Every structure is written in structure tokens, then in C-alpha cells.
Amino acid sequence: MIILILIIAAIGFIYFNVIPGKGHTICAWISLAFVALTIVGIVEHDYSHYGMKTKVETSSHQLVSSVNPKLPILLYQPLGNGTEKVYLYKTDNLQKKPKTTRTDHTSIHVTRSSTPKVVIKTTRYVYKDSFNAFMFGVFGHNNEFKKHQYNFYVPKNWQVLSTSQLKTLQARMKKMEAQTKLMHE
């Protein structure tokens, strides 16, 4: 709707400037003010999400080991210089491949607790009211993604390891199994 108002105000401004008449100067200035206000509204909506509010959706899932039910481990893969991490987690033992955390607009916290779980908060922009949805609905920004927040709660007996640390651990375990077989033979 705001684009329609902009078009009508621009046509009005042009009309009242081209066609001479009594009171057309005032109408031209009013039309110009509407043009300016609608442009400011469009820019503010696009950059600052004017007319929108944030909505947070929270989901909580049981956390199971990323590797093996017998080894309580939460895995992560460091990215770049290691400051960013992608966590690999499972919410069910029947799950073949672990899920990954997102990397864009994401914050991740790992906290020690008594029960393993992951709480995922997804924040999205939604229109404040029906008027704003009517005015800015043409831009399609409703339910636009803002950010993810992953909170991993792991017990004290769980290990939080990188994928390279897991490979080193697996190599040590194979070596220990081989030594144990040799001792029992």
C-alpha cells in the first residue's frame, strides 16, 4: 500500500506543479511531503524493520551423544581460526547423521547441567499490527529471520570435543584394544 501512496503522491506533485491553478502550490507541497514521508517509511522499514517486532520461537530437545550412546560426547568442528564453531548434535539415538548448528547470525552457549538437552531459540521479525502489515506487506518481510541461539546443556560426565580430538581419541582406543587383545592371548 505504501508504494501506491508514493505513486499517487508523486503524480499529485507533478500534476499540481504542471497545471496552473489557485491553491495548487499548497497541494504540490503537501504531495511532496507525502512523497518524502513514504520514502522515509520504506527506507526505515527496509533497514530498521520499522513497523515490525521480534517473535521468539523456543524448542527444547533431548541431547544424545554425537558419536555413540556409550560415549557421552558433544562434537564441534572449528571454522577458520577456531573462534567460530559448528556443533554436531543428535536428538535421537536412531538418528544416522548429526544435525549441525547454523553459522549465520548464531550464538552458541555450552553449559554444564544435570540433564543433556539443547534449547534452540529462533528470533524472527513479524508485523506489529494489521495496519503495518497492510502498509508494508508488499515487501514480504513477515517472518523474516533475525537470529538463532543454541544453548547446549551437558552433564559433567560428557566431553565437548572437536572432530580432530575425536579422531585422536579413536586412534588411542584402537591402540588400547590391540594391546588388550595381545595381553589376553
Rank of each mutant, 00 (worst) to 15 (best):
Met1Val: 14
Ile3Thr: 08
Ile5Trp: 15
Ile5Ser: 14
Leu6Cys: 05
Ile7Leu: 15
Ile8Glu: 02
Ala9Thr: 06
Ala9Phe: 08
Ala10Arg: 04
Ala10Tyr: 13
Gly12Glu: 01
Gly12Val: 01
Phe13Arg: 14
Pro20Asp: 04
Gly21Arg: 04
Lys22Ile: 14
Ile26Phe: 13
Cys27Tyr: 12
Trp29Asn: 10
Ser31Glu: 06
Leu32Met: 12
Leu32Cys: 13
Phe34Asn: 05
Ala36Ile: 13
Ala36Cys: 10
Leu37Phe: 08
Leu37Ala: 11
Ile39Gln: 00
Ile39Ser: 02
Gly41Arg: 03
Ile42Gln: 04
Ile42Val: 08
Ile42Trp: 04
Val43Cys: 07
Val43Phe: 09
Glu44Phe: 12
His45Glu: 10
His49Asn: 12
Lys53Phe: 07
Thr54Met: 11
Lys55Phe: 13
Ser59Trp: 08
Ser60Met: 12
Ser60Ala: 10
Ser60Arg: 07
Gln62Arg: 12
Leu63His: 09
Ser66Tyr: 09
Leu71Met: 13
Ile73Phe: 13
Ile73Arg: 02
Leu74Val: 01
Leu75Met: 06
Leu75Arg: 02
Tyr76Asp: 00
Gln77Cys: 03
Leu79Phe: 07
Lys85Ser: 01
Tyr87Ser: 05
Leu88Val: 04
Tyr89Lys: 00
Lys90Asp: 00
Thr91Gln: 05
Leu94Trp: 09
Lys96Pro: 01
Thr101Asp: 05
Arg102Glu: 15
Thr103Gln: 14
Asp104Lys: 12
His105Ser: 15
His105Trp: 09
Thr106Pro: 07
Val110Ala: 01
Thr111Leu: 10
Ser113Met: 10
Ser113Glu: 09
Ser114Pro: 00
Val119Thr: 14
Ile120Cys: 06
Ile120Ala: 02
Ile120Pro: 08
Lys121Tyr: 00
Lys121Trp: 01
Thr122Ile: 14
Tyr125Cys: 02
Tyr127Ser: 02
Tyr127Thr: 05
Tyr127Ile: 06
Ser130Asp: 11
Met135Glu: 08
Met135Ser: 07
Met135Asn: 01
Val138Pro: 08
Phe139Val: 02
Gly140Thr: 00
His141Thr: 10
Asn142Pro: 08
Glu144His: 09
Glu144Lys: 12
Glu144Ala: 15
Phe145Gln: 00
Lys146Leu: 13
Lys147Pro: 07
His148Cys: 05
Gln149Lys: 14
Tyr150Phe: 12
Asn151Pro: 03
Phe152Pro: 03
Val154Asn: 03
Asn157Ala: 04
Asn157Val: 06
Trp158Phe: 06
Trp158Gly: 03
Gln159Pro: 08
Val160Gly: 02
Leu161Thr: 00
Lys167Ile: 05
Thr168Gln: 12
Leu169Arg: 08
Leu169Tyr: 09
Gln170Cys: 05
Arg172Tyr: 05
Lys175Pro: 03
Glu177Val: 04
Ala178Gly: 11
Ala178Leu: 13
Gln179Thr: 03
Leu182Asn: 13
Leu182Gln: 15
